[in-house]
């Protein structure tokens, strides 16, 4: 397919949008990772009240589309904050993604924690290793390994969900693709280009995560073979 000069200009716009998409995805993911790890550990405390609040909150967040959460923060954010501040699409999108995916990361961390065998905790105790050392050297490495496939999965979903923030007015890859499609009357090529950006990134992620899993799984992969 031949690309005219004006179309080339649109592709430059697309590239600029792609940078914004990546910024949003990466910052959202990192914040959700930190938030999820903290929340996941706190909610494992054997405290009935914390457990109950967490169950209700997680159920609400996991029971609602992220697009709705994005709209709520974008349109409703100003109102909720008493109309003092105007929220930018990027801020609204970032807040929504972090709020939603913190819950998913937390649930993942909780599941991974529960799957570390009891014997591992007991062995560290019997060896007089103090809790901090046990966590750092024995428990955490195993939690990370158990959670890794899920964390990779969440990254791919966060990346794809950033596309939704274009609906709250963010000038990202998708919104530029839409503009270009409308202006050039060539929607197919621009939407395919946008799709390929996401496809390539998830393919790269899978490659990278396979290597990461091999590294964290050292000593464990042999068990499966």
């Amino acid at each position: 397919m031949l690309i005219s000069a004006s179309e080339a200009g649109y592709f430059q716009q697309l590239a600029r949008g792609a940078v914004i998409t990546m910024e949003l995805a990466v910052s959202g993911y990192i914040l959700a990772l930190i938030g999820g790890a903290v929340v996941g550990l706190v909610t494992l405390l054997p405290n009935r009240a914390i457990q109950a609040v967490w169950r209700v909150y997680a159920s609400i967040v996991m029971g609602v589309p992220s697009l709705l959460v994005i709209f709520l923060f974008y349109y409703g954010g100003g109102t909720l904050l008493g109309g003092i501040i105007d929220i930018t699409p990027f801020e609204a999108g970032l807040t929504a993604l972090v709020v939603v995916y913190t819950v998913y990361v937390a649930e993942l961390v909780r599941g991974a924690m529960r799957n570390v065998p009891r014997g591992q905790f007991e062995a560290t105790a019997a060896l007089a290793i103090r809790p901090v050392g046990a966590w750092l050297h024995v428990i955490m490495p195993q939690v990370v390994r158990l959670a890794l496939p899920g964390l990779v999965n969440i990254w791919m979903i966060v990346l794809k969900d950033t596309a939704l923030v274009s609906l709250a007015g963010l000038n990202d890859l998708v919104s530029h693709a839409k503009t270009a499609a409308g202006a050039t009357k060539e929607p197919f090529i621009f939407f395919i280009a946008a799709a390929l950006f996401f496809v390539v990134f998830s393919a790269v992620t899978l490659r990278f995560s396979a290597r990461l899993e091999a590294r964290f799984g050292r000593g464990l992969a042999v068990a499966k073979a």
């Binding site: 794809k160 499609a181 009357k185 939407f191 395919i192 799709a195 496809v199």
Partner: peptide, 17 residues
Amino acid sequence: GTPALILMYLVYYGLAQ
């Protein structure tokens, strides 16, 4: 790998072309 949003655009607007 493709977000559902882009698939919507692609099927509705893209294929029509």
